[in-house]
Amino acid sequence: TRVETATETAWISLVTALHLVLGLSAVLGLLLLRWQFPAHYRRLRHALW
């Protein structure tokens, strides 16, 4: 049971790290898009909202 718990903890930390990385890359990508294509971003936002 001790090994299982350790594996579970490792998986949880791995998944958390993955989610953090994905979230950060998504935010960075959005910022980059907004910085590179302001007109396109505004049009996209206008279409979405």
Score class of each variant (00 low, 15 high):
42 R>M: 08
9 T>V: 12
6 A>M: 14
25 S>R: 02
37 F>M: 09
10 A>L: 07
28 L>D: 04
37 F>P: 02
44 L>K: 02
31 L>F: 11
31 L>S: 10
41 Y>P: 02
14 L>C: 06
48 L>Q: 02
31 L>T: 13
12 I>S: 10
8 E>M: 04
14 L>K: 00
25 S>E: 01
32 L>C: 04
44 L>R: 03
21 V>L: 11
30 L>F: 14
31 L>R: 02
11 W>M: 09
21 V>P: 01
3 V>M: 07
21 V>E: 02
14 L>V: 11
41 Y>I: 09
2 R>K: 12
32 L>F: 04
1 T>M: 15
8 E>Y: 05
39 A>D: 14
21 V>Y: 03
15 V>N: 05
25 S>N: 08
37 F>I: 07
7 T>A: 11
26 A>P: 00
45 R>P: 02
18 L>V: 08
35 W>L: 15
5 T>M: 09
38 P>R: 14
19 H>Q: 04
22 L>G: 09
27 V>Q: 03
20 L>H: 00
44 L>T: 05
8 E>N: 04
21 V>Q: 00
2 R>N: 08
18 L>P: 04
13 S>E: 05
48 L>V: 09
41 Y>D: 04
17 A>V: 11
20 L>K: 01
47 A>S: 08
41 Y>G: 06
40 H>C: 11
41 Y>R: 04
20 L>Y: 01
1 T>G: 06
32 L>I: 08
42 R>Q: 14
37 F>G: 02
45 R>A: 07
45 R>S: 07
32 L>H: 06
30 L>S: 08
10 A>Q: 11
1 T>H: 14
10 A>R: 11
19 H>Y: 04
14 L>I: 13
13 S>R: 13
26 A>E: 01
1 T>I: 12
2 R>V: 09
17 A>K: 00
15 V>H: 00
36 Q>S: 15
41 Y>T: 09
1 T>A: 10
10 A>Y: 07
27 V>R: 03
7 T>Q: 11
7 T>F: 08
2 R>W: 09
10 A>I: 10
11 W>N: 04
3 V>Q: 01
18 L>E: 02
42 R>A: 11
23 G>K: 01
27 V>K: 03
14 L>A: 04
35 W>G: 15
40 H>K: 13
26 A>I: 11
18 L>T: 06
35 W>E: 09
30 L>G: 10
48 L>K: 00
45 R>Y: 05
8 E>C: 05
36 Q>C: 08
36 Q>L: 09
28 L>V: 02
3 V>W: 01
29 G>Y: 02
6 A>F: 10
23 G>C: 14
31 L>Q: 06
47 A>W: 06
31 L>V: 12
26 A>Y: 03
28 L>S: 04
35 W>V: 15
42 R>K: 14
29 G>I: 10
24 L>T: 06
39 A>I: 10
11 W>L: 10
24 L>M: 15
34 R>K: 15
10 A>P: 14
25 S>P: 00
